[in-house]
Amino acid sequence: MTRHKIFTTSFASVYPHYVAKAEKKGRTRAEVDEIICWLTGYSPEELAARLEDQTDFETFFAQAPCVNLARSLIKGVVCGVRVEEVENPLMREIRYLDKMIDELAKGKPMEKILRDG
């Protein structure tokens, strides 16, 4: 089985697209960062370091300090696929992030996106 190209793509190369998608809909880079930190357990400083060192997606998620257990509450469709049905664990993590950024861009309140309550 061949590995998906996104796994070896640098997180930093995709990050500006997350931010642009959010900002186009009136949301902020800080909200994007909050989502990423909530999902992965990276501190803002650690996130900045991962962006700086061009960490690929596979490493970015493999080295995440503390993936949020509440991420399993993320449901829905991204790119025509239900995130909860994605079999590859790494692809599922990437789709969780995609889904959360989609929700941000659609105007969903942060407290609902972060699923802490």
Rank of each mutant, 00 (worst) to 15 (best):
R71V: 04
I35L: 12
D33W: 03
V14G: 01
R71K: 15
D33N: 11
L47R: 11
E46P: 00
R29D: 09
A105L: 10
F57S: 01
C66A: 15
P109G: 04
M110Y: 03
C37Y: 00
Y42N: 03
A70R: 15
T8I: 08
I101Y: 03
K24G: 11
L69D: 15
S13K: 05
V67Q: 14
A20Y: 03
N68E: 09
C37W: 02
D98N: 11
P44L: 05
D102C: 05
R82K: 13
I94Y: 08
R95A: 11
V81D: 12
E87I: 08
R71Q: 13
V81S: 11
E93S: 12
V86M: 15
S13A: 12
N68P: 05
E45S: 14
S43N: 08
Q63Y: 13
F57Y: 14
V67C: 09
D56Q: 01
Y18M: 15
K25L: 08
S43E: 10
G41V: 08
M1G: 15
T59F: 00
N68V: 01
P89I: 12
K108W: 10
V14K: 09
V77P: 00
K75E: 09
A48D: 13
V81P: 07
A22N: 02
A70K: 14
M110W: 06
K106I: 00
F11M: 01
T28I: 04
A22T: 02
H4E: 12
E93Y: 07
T2I: 09
A64Q: 02
L97H: 04
R95M: 11
C37T: 06
P89V: 10
D98K: 04
H4I: 09
V19H: 04
A105M: 05
R50F: 12
P109N: 04
I94G: 01
I36A: 10
Y15V: 07
D116C: 04
L90P: 02
Q54C: 06
E34M: 10
W38F: 11
A70S: 15
E103F: 09
E111Y: 13
T2L: 11
V32Y: 01
C66N: 15
L114D: 00
A20F: 03
K75D: 10
K99N: 08
F7R: 06
F11E: 01
R71S: 12
V83F: 07
L104Q: 07
Q63K: 14
P89C: 10
G80P: 10
Y42G: 02
P89M: 11
F61V: 00
E103G: 02
K108S: 09
D102K: 11
A49Q: 13
L47V: 05
V32K: 03
R71A: 07
Q63G: 09
T9P: 01
M100D: 02
L73G: 08
E46T: 03
Y96T: 03
A64Y: 08
A12L: 01
K99S: 09
P16D: 08
Y18L: 14
R115W: 04
N88M: 07
F60T: 06
E23T: 15
D53I: 13
P16W: 07
A62T: 12
E84W: 06
